[in-house]
Design a protein around this nucleic acid. Structure first.
Lengths: 111, 111
DNA sequence: CTAACCTACAACCAAATGGTTGTAAGTGAG
DNA sequence: CTCACTTACAACCATTTGGTTGTAGGTTAG
Protein backbone atom coordinates (compact mmCIF):
# COMPACT_ATOMS: atom_id res chain seq x y z
CA UNK A 1 0.00 0.00 0.00
CA UNK A 2 1.53 3.29 -1.17
CA UNK A 3 1.94 6.39 0.99
CA UNK A 4 -0.67 8.37 -0.92
CA UNK A 5 -3.09 5.49 -0.67
CA UNK A 6 -2.57 5.15 3.08
CA UNK A 7 -2.95 8.93 3.48
CA UNK A 8 -6.34 8.80 1.77
CA UNK A 9 -7.58 5.68 3.53
CA UNK A 10 -6.63 6.64 7.09
CA UNK A 11 -7.82 10.19 6.62
CA UNK A 12 -11.14 8.81 5.37
CA UNK A 13 -11.39 6.57 8.43
CA UNK A 14 -10.58 9.43 10.81
CA UNK A 15 -14.14 10.77 10.93
CA UNK A 16 -16.91 9.06 12.84
CA UNK A 17 -19.65 9.97 10.37
CA UNK A 18 -17.62 8.37 7.61
CA UNK A 19 -16.93 5.29 9.73
CA UNK A 20 -20.65 5.09 10.39
CA UNK A 21 -21.36 5.25 6.66
CA UNK A 22 -18.80 2.49 6.19
CA UNK A 23 -20.80 0.32 8.55
CA UNK A 24 -24.04 0.86 6.65
CA UNK A 25 -22.77 0.48 3.10
CA UNK A 26 -20.81 -2.59 4.08
CA UNK A 27 -23.96 -4.46 4.97
CA UNK A 28 -25.83 -3.42 1.84
CA UNK A 29 -25.78 -0.68 -0.77
CA UNK A 30 -27.43 2.64 0.05
CA UNK A 31 -28.32 5.58 -2.17
CA UNK A 32 -26.75 8.88 -1.13
CA UNK A 33 -30.18 10.35 -0.33
CA UNK A 34 -31.14 7.42 1.85
CA UNK A 35 -27.84 7.85 3.70
CA UNK A 36 -28.35 11.59 4.02
CA UNK A 37 -31.77 11.06 5.61
CA UNK A 38 -30.09 9.15 8.43
CA UNK A 39 -27.90 12.04 9.62
CA UNK A 40 -28.56 15.48 11.03
CA UNK A 41 -26.16 17.18 8.65
CA UNK A 42 -27.07 18.44 5.17
CA UNK A 43 -27.29 16.33 2.04
CA UNK A 44 -24.23 18.06 0.60
CA UNK A 45 -22.21 17.24 3.70
CA UNK A 46 -23.04 13.53 3.41
CA UNK A 47 -22.26 13.70 -0.29
CA UNK A 48 -18.82 15.09 0.55
CA UNK A 49 -18.21 12.32 3.08
CA UNK A 50 -19.06 9.72 0.47
CA UNK A 51 -16.71 11.46 -1.96
CA UNK A 52 -13.88 11.21 0.58
CA UNK A 53 -14.56 7.51 1.05
CA UNK A 54 -14.70 7.05 -2.70
CA UNK A 55 -11.38 8.84 -3.32
CA UNK A 56 -9.86 6.43 -0.80
CA UNK A 57 -11.41 3.49 -2.71
CA UNK A 58 -13.18 2.42 0.45
CA UNK A 59 -16.54 2.56 -1.31
CA UNK A 60 -17.75 2.41 -4.90
CA UNK A 61 -20.77 3.92 -6.58
CA UNK A 62 -22.96 2.31 -9.22
CA UNK A 63 -25.93 3.84 -11.01
CA UNK A 64 -29.49 2.60 -10.57
CA UNK A 65 -31.88 4.87 -12.39
CA UNK A 66 -31.65 8.35 -11.03
CA UNK A 67 -29.82 7.32 -7.90
CA UNK A 68 -26.31 6.09 -7.18
CA UNK A 69 -25.86 3.16 -4.87
CA UNK A 70 -22.87 3.27 -2.55
CA UNK A 71 -21.30 -0.02 -1.54
CA UNK A 72 -18.21 -1.00 0.46
CA UNK A 73 -14.96 -2.09 -1.18
CA UNK A 74 -13.66 -4.86 1.05
CA UNK A 75 -10.37 -5.11 -0.82
CA UNK A 76 -9.11 -1.66 0.25
CA UNK A 77 -10.16 -2.35 3.80
CA UNK A 78 -8.13 -5.55 3.74
CA UNK A 79 -5.05 -3.70 2.49
CA UNK A 80 -5.32 -1.14 5.30
CA UNK A 81 -5.77 -3.90 7.82
CA UNK A 82 -2.64 -5.58 6.47
CA UNK A 83 -0.59 -2.41 6.91
CA UNK A 84 -1.53 -2.19 10.58
CA UNK A 85 -0.83 -5.87 11.02
CA UNK A 86 2.68 -5.36 9.60
CA UNK A 87 3.45 -2.64 12.16
CA UNK A 88 2.05 -4.85 14.86
CA UNK A 89 4.32 -7.73 13.98
CA UNK A 90 7.49 -5.66 13.96
CA UNK A 91 6.49 -4.01 17.22
CA UNK A 92 6.05 -7.29 19.05
CA UNK A 93 9.77 -7.98 18.67
CA UNK A 94 10.59 -4.94 20.76
CA UNK A 95 8.45 -6.00 23.69
CA UNK A 96 10.89 -8.19 25.59
CA UNK A 97 13.40 -7.00 28.16
CA UNK A 98 16.44 -8.08 26.16
CA UNK A 99 15.83 -5.68 23.29
CA UNK A 100 15.22 -2.91 25.81
CA UNK A 101 18.71 -3.46 27.22
CA UNK A 102 20.18 -3.51 23.74
CA UNK A 103 18.39 -0.25 23.04
CA UNK A 104 20.10 1.43 25.97
CA UNK A 105 23.49 0.50 24.58
CA UNK A 106 22.54 1.52 21.02
CA UNK A 107 21.13 4.85 22.13
CA UNK A 108 24.31 5.72 23.99
CA UNK A 109 26.54 4.99 21.00
CA UNK A 110 24.11 6.55 18.54
CA UNK A 111 25.00 9.30 16.03
CA UNK B 1 -12.68 1.03 20.73
CA UNK B 2 -14.64 4.26 21.32
CA UNK B 3 -15.41 6.84 18.64
CA UNK B 4 -13.09 9.45 20.14
CA UNK B 5 -10.31 6.90 20.39
CA UNK B 6 -10.76 5.85 16.76
CA UNK B 7 -10.85 9.51 15.70
CA UNK B 8 -7.50 10.11 17.36
CA UNK B 9 -5.86 6.91 16.17
CA UNK B 10 -6.89 7.11 12.51
CA UNK B 11 -6.15 10.81 12.34
CA UNK B 12 -2.70 10.09 13.76
CA UNK B 13 -2.13 7.40 11.15
CA UNK B 14 -3.27 9.68 8.31
CA UNK B 15 0.10 11.43 7.93
CA UNK B 16 3.09 9.78 6.30
CA UNK B 17 5.66 11.45 8.55
CA UNK B 18 3.82 10.10 11.57
CA UNK B 19 3.55 6.63 10.04
CA UNK B 20 7.28 6.79 9.37
CA UNK B 21 7.91 7.70 13.00
CA UNK B 22 5.71 4.75 13.97
CA UNK B 23 7.99 2.48 12.00
CA UNK B 24 11.11 3.76 13.74
CA UNK B 25 9.88 3.83 17.32
CA UNK B 26 8.32 0.41 16.92
CA UNK B 27 11.70 -1.19 16.35
CA UNK B 28 13.39 0.62 19.22
CA UNK B 29 12.97 3.74 21.32
CA UNK B 30 14.19 7.05 19.92
CA UNK B 31 14.67 10.42 21.57
CA UNK B 32 12.73 13.27 20.00
CA UNK B 33 15.95 14.98 18.92
CA UNK B 34 17.29 11.86 17.26
CA UNK B 35 13.98 11.56 15.41
CA UNK B 36 14.03 15.23 14.45
CA UNK B 37 17.51 14.86 12.93
CA UNK B 38 16.10 12.30 10.50
CA UNK B 39 13.58 14.64 8.87
CA UNK B 40 13.82 17.85 6.89
CA UNK B 41 11.21 19.62 8.98
CA UNK B 42 11.92 21.55 12.17
CA UNK B 43 12.37 20.04 15.63
CA UNK B 44 9.10 21.61 16.78
CA UNK B 45 7.22 20.02 13.87
CA UNK B 46 8.52 16.57 14.77
CA UNK B 47 7.68 17.25 18.40
CA UNK B 48 4.10 18.03 17.36
CA UNK B 49 3.86 14.82 15.35
CA UNK B 50 5.00 12.83 18.35
CA UNK B 51 2.41 14.66 20.47
CA UNK B 52 -0.33 13.64 18.04
CA UNK B 53 0.80 10.01 18.21
CA UNK B 54 0.95 10.23 21.99
CA UNK B 55 -2.57 11.68 22.33
CA UNK B 56 -3.74 8.70 20.28
CA UNK B 57 -1.86 6.36 22.65
CA UNK B 58 0.07 4.97 19.71
CA UNK B 59 3.37 5.83 21.37
CA UNK B 60 4.54 6.47 24.93
CA UNK B 61 7.35 8.61 26.30
CA UNK B 62 9.69 7.78 29.15
CA UNK B 63 12.42 9.94 30.61
CA UNK B 64 16.11 9.09 30.38
CA UNK B 65 18.18 11.93 31.75
CA UNK B 66 17.56 15.08 29.79
CA UNK B 67 15.89 13.30 26.92
CA UNK B 68 12.55 11.54 26.44
CA UNK B 69 12.51 8.21 24.69
CA UNK B 70 9.56 7.54 22.42
CA UNK B 71 8.42 3.96 22.01
CA UNK B 72 5.49 2.27 20.23
CA UNK B 73 2.39 1.08 22.08
CA UNK B 74 1.47 -2.19 20.38
CA UNK B 75 -1.80 -2.51 22.32
CA UNK B 76 -3.46 0.51 20.68
CA UNK B 77 -2.29 -0.65 17.30
CA UNK B 78 -3.91 -4.02 17.95
CA UNK B 79 -7.22 -2.38 18.88
CA UNK B 80 -7.24 -0.35 15.66
CA UNK B 81 -6.42 -3.44 13.67
CA UNK B 82 -9.34 -5.22 15.31
CA UNK B 83 -11.75 -2.45 14.35
CA UNK B 84 -10.81 -2.77 10.70
CA UNK B 85 -11.05 -6.55 10.92
CA UNK B 86 -14.62 -6.21 12.26
CA UNK B 87 -15.67 -4.11 9.27
CA UNK B 88 -13.98 -6.58 7.00
CA UNK B 89 -15.89 -9.52 8.40
CA UNK B 90 -19.29 -7.89 8.10
CA UNK B 91 -18.47 -6.75 4.59
CA UNK B 92 -17.62 -10.23 3.38
CA UNK B 93 -21.23 -11.29 3.90
CA UNK B 94 -22.37 -8.78 1.30
CA UNK B 95 -20.10 -10.09 -1.41
CA UNK B 96 -22.23 -12.87 -2.89
CA UNK B 97 -24.86 -12.51 -5.59
CA UNK B 98 -27.74 -13.59 -3.37
CA UNK B 99 -27.45 -10.65 -0.97
CA UNK B 100 -27.18 -8.34 -3.95
CA UNK B 101 -30.57 -9.56 -5.17
CA UNK B 102 -32.02 -9.17 -1.69
CA UNK B 103 -30.66 -5.62 -1.63
CA UNK B 104 -32.58 -4.70 -4.76
CA UNK B 105 -35.83 -5.78 -3.12
CA UNK B 106 -34.97 -4.05 0.19
CA UNK B 107 -34.02 -0.81 -1.52
CA UNK B 108 -37.32 -0.69 -3.38
CA UNK B 109 -39.39 -1.16 -0.21
CA UNK B 110 -37.14 1.08 1.86
CA UNK B 111 -38.29 4.00 4.05
C1' DC C 1 30.01 26.54 37.01
C1' DT C 2 29.00 27.15 32.55
C1' DA C 3 27.99 26.05 28.04
C1' DA C 4 25.72 22.93 25.12
C1' DC C 5 21.76 20.08 24.56
C1' DC C 6 16.97 18.51 24.91
C1' DT C 7 12.25 19.40 25.55
C1' DA C 8 8.04 22.32 25.97
C1' DC C 9 5.11 25.70 24.46
C1' DA C 10 3.33 30.08 22.52
C1' DA C 11 2.35 32.91 18.49
C1' DC C 12 1.81 33.10 13.94
C1' DC C 13 0.67 31.64 8.88
C1' DA C 14 -1.13 29.15 4.75
C1' DA C 15 -3.73 25.35 3.42
C1' DA C 16 -7.11 21.79 4.20
C1' DT C 17 -11.40 20.23 6.55
C1' DG C 18 -16.26 19.85 7.68
C1' DG C 19 -19.98 22.32 7.49
C1' DT C 20 -23.49 25.53 5.15
C1' DT C 21 -26.63 27.42 1.16
C1' DG C 22 -27.65 27.93 -3.61
C1' DT C 23 -27.80 26.58 -8.45
C1' DA C 24 -28.01 23.37 -12.24
C1' DA C 25 -28.94 19.15 -14.54
C1' DG C 26 -30.56 14.29 -15.19
C1' DT C 27 -34.22 10.77 -14.26
C1' DG C 28 -38.70 8.71 -13.15
C1' DA C 29 -43.50 8.60 -11.51
C1' DG C 30 -48.04 9.89 -12.49
C1' DC D 1 -45.37 16.57 -20.05
C1' DT D 2 -44.47 18.04 -15.84
C1' DC D 3 -43.12 17.98 -11.20
C1' DA D 4 -40.72 15.91 -7.59
C1' DC D 5 -36.44 13.45 -6.58
C1' DT D 6 -31.55 12.64 -6.77
C1' DT D 7 -27.06 13.97 -7.62
C1' DA D 8 -23.20 17.33 -8.60
C1' DC D 9 -20.74 21.22 -7.73
C1' DA D 10 -19.54 26.08 -6.59
C1' DA D 11 -18.98 29.65 -3.14
C1' DC D 12 -18.52 30.73 1.34
C1' DC D 13 -17.28 30.36 6.51
C1' DA D 14 -15.14 28.78 10.97
C1' DT D 15 -11.94 25.58 12.74
C1' DT D 16 -8.12 22.49 12.50
C1' DT D 17 -3.76 21.17 10.66
C1' DG D 18 1.08 21.09 9.61
C1' DG D 19 4.48 24.05 9.32
C1' DT D 20 7.48 28.01 11.00
C1' DT D 21 10.31 30.95 14.58
C1' DG D 22 11.19 32.38 19.14
C1' DT D 23 11.50 31.95 24.15
C1' DA D 24 12.15 29.54 28.40
C1' DG D 25 13.36 25.74 31.61
C1' DG D 26 15.89 21.37 32.82
C1' DT D 27 19.79 18.29 32.61
C1' DT D 28 24.37 16.84 31.69
C1' DA D 29 29.09 16.92 30.04
C1' DG D 30 33.44 19.00 30.64
Amino acid sequence: MSDVEADLVFHALADRTRRDIMGKVGEREHSISSLARQYEISFAAVQKHVAVLERASLVTKRVRGREKLVGGNAETLRRASRLLARYEQVWRHRDDAITRLLNERDERTES
